[in-house]
Design a binder for these strands. Structure first.
Length: 172
DNA sequence: TAAGTGATCTCT
DNA sequence: GAGATCACTTAA
């Protein structure tokens, strides 16, 4: 099982390493094939980014979990229908996380969580065997040249700089 | 291509 | 409390 030391380090370093790892829930083991990183106070695509009126990052009931130390889940509803599954990363008080976009053949974060029946019950819970939703390294080796980087999806509102950051990683 | 859905944020 | 916004999917 991937432990806290995997998640409590720089997000852009660990995000591509999640490719080829497995997402474990109940009797399912899904190979992770696509992720997206959201990193830090200046990342305008992040819900926790620094904004006018929020010089130290936007901390509300919803976004508080982003400021937690790495290793807990951030699950949030989008468009009134779809649950987005993110793992929080890096150190306490530094807002960052990785969205799981595709795993086990389920392409699209909404489809993935629907299949796994994951919803807000997991928000703020740790990724470990007790909660039943966690990651495993099952020995799959992903060569560097199999990893594609691309701009993140659906974040045009973040402006020309942040919406174009190549922080989406997927397997060729 | 556009509707569906509801939590959350901002402004009153 | 009202109105806008949204890290998407599906059916057409």
């Amino acid at each position: 099982m991937l432990k806290l030391n995997f998640f409590q380090r720089p997000t852009l370093e660990l995000a591509p390493e999640l490719l080829g790892k497995f997402l474990i829930y109940r009797d399912k083991r899904l190979l992770i094939t696509e992720v997206e990183a959201y990193d830090g106070l200046d990342d305008l695509a992040s819900h926790a980014a620094r904004r006018p009126g929020w010089p130290n990052g936007r901390r509300t009931d919803r976004t508080e979990v982003l400021f937690a130390a790495g290793g807990v889940w951030y699950v949030r509803l989008i468009y009134g229908m779809y649950w987005m599954l993110n793992i929080i990363t890096d150190k306490k008080d530094y807002p960052a996380g990785v969205l799981i976009r595709a795993a086990g053949g389920f392409k699209g974060p909404g489809k993935l969580t629907k299949h796994l029946e994951i919803d807000k019950r997991f928000n703020n819970l740790p990724a470990n065997k007790k909660t039943g939703l966690y990651f495993e390294d099952r020995g799959v080796v992903v060569p560097e040249n199999k990893i594609i980087t691309a701009p993140r999806v659906g974040v045009a509102y973040a402006g020309p700089v942040w919406s174009q950051k190549p922080w989406r990683f997927y397997l060729k």
